[in-house]
Nucleic acid binder design. Structure first.
Length: 559
RNA sequence: GCCUCUGUAGUUCAAUGGAUAGAACAACGAUCUUCUAAGUCGUGAAUGUGGGUUCGAUUCCUACCAGAGGCGCCA
């Protein structure tokens, strides 16, 4: 049983209370758990201190708080347990059911920029966290392979065939205002698939984009179960909208259809405000009869529910789409009542440049690939004097670069914007991805040393597969006070869809380990505590490795 | 104009209504003949403003100020 629950149950039983709020004191000096009892602290604390459970070493009351200090035995057991269980240590059953999770969603014909990188880092991490929390996750991605951006690119490619695809997109974007009608015409042709030349260009461009995306997913450690496309969702969505229009305005009148959508000024709209306060009207099919993003999202909802049976469907986007999802989720709920309450839109802040919002229209956009490469070069610079093969250096620099980028995205609560300053945002020191990777690598190298140190050093070697005893006089370390908390951190991160709890925790853990490492000599055959110190190192290494995996950050062998 | 979100050290971020508001970067000073110095140890610095609820508010409510995003034919 989880220690937290065990303590809670004990206190509730002793005090005959229904519910108590148990927390960790901010300062480890004040123990491992505490709860506030006001002026009853002594009155309540005393009996608790007489009827302790074995996991509790002592109970103290100070300033209205009752503080609980865990026992040496508990810490020793939890260290041994994590070494025995490995990654299973944090497995939980709090998350249940099948969860469809939609993220990254780069649009073909457009660049995969650092905004997608941010969305992917968050989406991938949440997926992994939900999975260990006990849910079955189905990661999918949805791609805008239709719409004006595509028409602009195709137009650009027709005008200047010598441009590459991203160049054609920029060129089309710049010239949109002056060639609006031509581009809109192309948009219609793409939608109708009526022009063979355009169809061919379209297929070429789409294939090119999707292939380049695959490479990036692999680099980032993402795999998707399935890809949805707007070109399908659009058709499906348009039909749904037409079916659910007010009958007198609908082209194909059926008895019993719902009057969810209506015609207005030639477009088909949904009056969100009639269904839910603080929402508004949005256009679902435009005057040209082309489904907008809104109708496509409804179509997507249908495609998703036909493809998968799920308990929850999560879509992760930037928060600029918050009000869009507010309205569209209401519309989806009207059309498919069975989906009400199953849809969850999670949004994150925007990545912005010091000058303001990143705009692909003006070309002021940082491509993911270019960012990764630039950071990689910085890492390679640091590795310059290391005795490593060029192969190893290349591999390490990629792992470290991506780790640094992901950390900088995941370290903060997902709601906030990230002001992306190239020189400052990606750090290798202090709170950073490389700090965690470095700590894990360092712990691992200590473990390696402990194995090969000395043939006579069997006691230490042996411990690796069995329980390690703690010497009587080995005091409780700060490190142990962090180690046992890992499962509860993972649990909370899953419940709140908040990877940053894991980042914060791992950083604290790494700090505690590095202090420990600085103060103590871990591998030392003359030291009776050495086996236990190595066990602590091993537990730390396990947690770092597994925790970083939940953030989709890899750990190199050396660095 | 309306709606939503956000205001914490110089900077970038933390803080399940609770204890002296934590880190990191930057600055300064220590620290490698000893398991990886991308490390460790130390020094200074912050809750936008005014009310309210509470034994207790960075956290909840309210007004204001500041910033960001969104608001019928982009995605």
């Amino acid at each position: 049983m989880e220690i937290q629950k065990k303590i809670k149950d004990w206190i509730k039983k002793e005090l005959k209370m229904e519910e108590i709020i148990l927390m960790h004191p901010k300062d480890l000096q004040n123990g491992d758990f505490s709860f506030f009892a006001g002026d009853k602290a002594e009155e309540i604390g005393k009996p608790l201190s007489y009827h302790k459970i074995p996991e509790i070493e002592k109970v103290k009351w100070v300033g209205g708080f009752i503080n609980f200090y865990l026992s040496k035995e508990f810490f020793t057991d939890s260290v041994n347990e994590i070494n025995k269980e490995g990654p299973k240590f944090a497995k939980a059953t709090s998350g249940k059911g099948k969860i469809l999770i939609d993220h990254t969603a780069p649009n073909p014909f457009k660049e995969f920029h650092i905004g997608h990188l941010m969305n992917n880092a968050i989406g991938e991490s949440i997926t992994r966290i939900l999975e260990v929390s006990g849910a079955k996750t189905i990661p999918v991605s949805y791609h805008g392979d239709m719409g004006l951006h595509v028409a602009k690119t195709i137009w650009g490619k027709i005008q200047k065939p010598e441009l590459d695809w991203s160049g054609a997109y920029v060129y089309g974007g710049i010239n949109y205002e002056n060639h609006k009608e031509e581009i809109k015409e192309i948009n219609k042709k793409i939608y109708e698939k009526s022009d063979p030349k355009i169809n061919k260009l379209y297929e070429e461009g789409k294939k090119f984009s999707l292939n380049s995306f695959e490479k990036i997913y692999e680099q980032l450690g993402s795999k998707f179960d399935f890809h949805f496309y707007e070109s399908e969702a659009g058709q499906v969505g348009k039909k749904i909208v037409e079916k659910n229009m007010s009958p007198e305005e609908s082209a194909n009148v059926d008895d019993g259809v719902k009057k969810i959508f209506e015609k207005s000024n030639g477009a088909v709209i949904f009056r969100g405000e009639n269904f839910k306060p603080k929402t508004h009207t949005r256009v679902f099919v435009n005057t040209d009869g082309i489904p907008t993003y809104e109708a496509k999202e409804i179509g997507l909802a249908k495609l998703k529910k036909e493809k998968y049976i799920y308990d929850k469907s999560i879509t992760i986007t930037a928060n600029e789409q918050d009000s869009f999802f507010d309205v569209v989720e209401v519309a989806i709920g009207e059309v498919f009542p069975e989906l009400k309450g199953k849809l969850l839109h999670l949004s994150h802040g925007m990545l912005r440049l010091p000058g303001g919002k990143m705009s692909s229209r003006t070309g002021e956009v940082i491509m993911a690939e270019s960012l990764i490469n630039q950071i990689k070069m910085k890492v390679e610079e640091k590795l310059k004097d290391r005795e490593l093969s060029p192969e190893e250096k290349k591999q390490i620099s990629e792992i470290v670069a991506i780790g640094a980028i992901k950390y900088s995205i995941l370290k903060q609560a997902i709601g906030g914007d990230i002001i992306f300053d190239f020189d400052k945002s990606i750090s290798f020191e202090g709170d950073s991805g490389p700090y965690l990777q470095y700590t894990a690598v360092r712990a691992n190298s200590v473990l390696e040393k402990s194995k090969f140190q000395n043939p006579n050093f069997k006691t230490i070697f042996k411990f690796l597969n069995s329980k390690t005893k703690r010497p009587e006089d080995f005091e409780i370390t700060e490190l142990e006070r962090y180690i046992y908390r890992f499962p509860e951190v993972v649990k909370r991160a899953g419940e709140e869809y908040a990877p940053h709890y894991i980042v914060t925790y791992l950083t604290e853990l790494a700090g505690a380990f590095n202090s420990f490492y600085g103060k103590e000599r871990i591998v030392n055959e003359k030291d009776l505590s050495s086996p236990y110190k190595i066990a602590l190192t091993r537990a730390t290494h396990n947690i770092l490795k597994f925790g970083l995996n939940l953030l989709a950050i890899k750990v190199p062998d050396k660095m």
